[in-house]
Design a protein around this nucleic acid. Structure first.
Length: 454
RNA sequence: GGGCCGGUAGCUCAGCUGGCAGAGCAGGGGACUUUUAAUCCCAAGGUCGUUGGUUCGAAUCCAACCCGGCCCA
């Protein structure tokens, strides 16, 4: 006979467990509860069988007395629904004394070792369902990730930002320095790029008068993988009309402190062997000063290359000054930014969308913020003048791997864009930091892997 | 892209100085009414990542390749 198609009026295991814990050992409550979940342990004892039932909320022992339930014919991994009463075993284990047990879905494949669990990273990533089933920490990590995103949304929604969706398939890519994935539309007979950022479309919406917009979505970068890089990752970008980068700094500090408290209950996390506290205010340092501290600030490319080489840094991949200074920063400064730090006023060559500072036209109102030795995001006072933006694109075209430019975007700016503060936040990296997971693959449900050999 | 490490039963791992492919858990059969890595008995379970080479003989030695991890770029 086919198993039931539903199991209504279900209670959560965590709640029933709490109820059972309040009882005296060896006693049973008169209340009736219904639980459903997966059988993750079985201890047969003749006409009495102990099962461990697991749902999203937790785990509880089932006491199955054959004289009450009938014969118990379940295997590890079966999905069952039970009715019974909260109880405590003689040894004090919170349990449900079962009156009726229904098999809802049979497990036909042996589960991984119930003691050692599933540890092989390759199987954990390729068959994430098994990882989630076997490893409670994995379930907790992804539930935390969801709370983080929920918290971000509720903050931005309450602040009057509207959530939008912009194209993933784009005729031009831009908004970051990265290699794109290219695909092809048969109908349009045109190559399209998978977006590397949402930046340029979101700012078109600011031109259009939406004033406060954000998008949480996947970006794609056709580049190497590392503990903090995946080809497909999740980014938040927001744009706020009539704000500058100082307003934006205040907002991101407020948001991340709040997200930590809401999702985790504390602002203090352990990450890569460090204790990191996200409480406001964060440290701030100018980009130039951060490099000066290491005697790595110079606008002379040859001199900078020499200083880096002297430190044993391989600069053979760095073609020009912007690449050298970026390398110097990410190699020397970034790893030491363990406590939350805002680095601000970046050189204009590295910042094609940020307005120049008031007192130095070679620097821009841009900041990046770091924690745990890792960049979390990037923000600026947006260029809102079409001519100035075109001049920046022209400047970029002189640099290797510079921003490719986007005439359609410049045209949008020509209609006038309010002064705007914009920001990007790497959701995966934030999830790493708050969960204490040391690799980005552990906070992405299905990370990109090479296809298995057939 | 380079270096190092790994891939043996569904899972966790032994075996690797060449000589019959193993254990625990899971899965199958049986015993057991308070266990919680329950216990006990029985039977079963394999493309030793792939391909080639050396050898009387290869999981084991050699080469290439595939997949993964860590580090470097």
């Amino acid at each position: 006979m086919a198993p039931p198609k539903r199991f209504p009026e279900r209670d959560e295991i965590a709640a029933v467990r709490e109820e059972a814990t309040a009882l005296e050992p060896g006693t049973e409550s008169p209340e009736k509860r219904r639980l459903a979940g997966r059988v993750m342990a079985r201890r047969g004892h003749g006409k009495l069988t102990f099962l461990d039932l697991v749902d999203r909320s937790g785990r509880i022992q089932l006491l199955c007395d054959e004289s009450r339930v009938g014969a118990i014919d379940v295997n590890l991994g079966d999905v069952v629904g039970v009715t019974g009463s909260p109880a405590r075993s003689r040894r004090g284990e919170p349990s449900l004394a079962v009156d009726a047990l229904e098999l809802l879905s049979e497990n036909r494949s042996p589960l991984p070792d119930t003691f050692h669990g599933l540890t092989d990273p390759e199987i954990r990533y390729r068959k994430r369902y098994l990882d989630l089933l076997m490893n409670e920490e994995t379930r907790e990590t992804f539930l935390l990730r969801t709370r983080i995103v929920t918290s971000i949304r509720s903050y931005l929604d309450a602040e009057g930002f509207i959530e939008v969706e912009t194209p993933i398939l784009q005729p031009r890519y831009g908004g970051a320095f990265a290699h794109p994935f290219v695909t092809h539309s048969n109908e349009l007979d045109a190559d399209l790029y998978l977006r590397i950022a949402t930046e340029l479309y979101l700012k078109r919406l600011i031109v259009g008068g939406l004033e406060r917009v954000y998008e949480i979505g996947k970006d794609f970068r056709n580049e190497g993988v590392s503990y903090k890089h995946q080809p497909e990752f999740t980014m938040l970008e927001w744009y706020e009309a009539y704000a500058d980068y100082r307003d934006t700094m205040a907002r991101i500090e407020e948001l991340l402190e709040r997200v930590a408290l809401e999702a985790l209950g504390t602002t203090t996390v352990r990450f890569r062997g460090h204790e990191v506290d996200l409480r406001r205010p964060w440290a701030r340092i100018r980009f130039v000063e951060a490099l000066e501290r290491h005697e790595l600030w110079t606008r002379d490319a040859d001199e900078l290359r020499a200083r880096l080489e002297r430190r044993g840094v391989d600069t053979t991949q760095d073609k020009d000054w912007p690449q050298l200074v970026d390398h110097a920063f990410s190699h020397v400064v970034e790893p030491e930014l363990v406590q939350p730090t805002i680095v601000h006023d970046y050189p204009i060559e590295l910042s094609p969308f940020a307005r120049a500072t008031d007192d130095d036209p070679t620097l821009t109102e841009r900041f990046e913020y770091f924690a745990g030795g890792m960049e979390l995001g990037n923000a600026f006072t947006e260029i809102n003048d079409a001519d100035e933006q075109q001049a920046r694109f022209d400047m970029q075209s002189q640099h290797v791997g510079g921003e490719p430019g986007d005439p359609d975007y410049v045209e949008a700016l020509s209609y006038g864009m309010p002064p705007t503060g914009g920001l990007g936040l790497g959701i995966d990296r934030l999830a790493m930091l708050l969960s204490g997971r040391e690799t980005i693959r552990d906070v992405i449900l299905f990370p990109t892997l090479r296809p298995e050999a057939s």
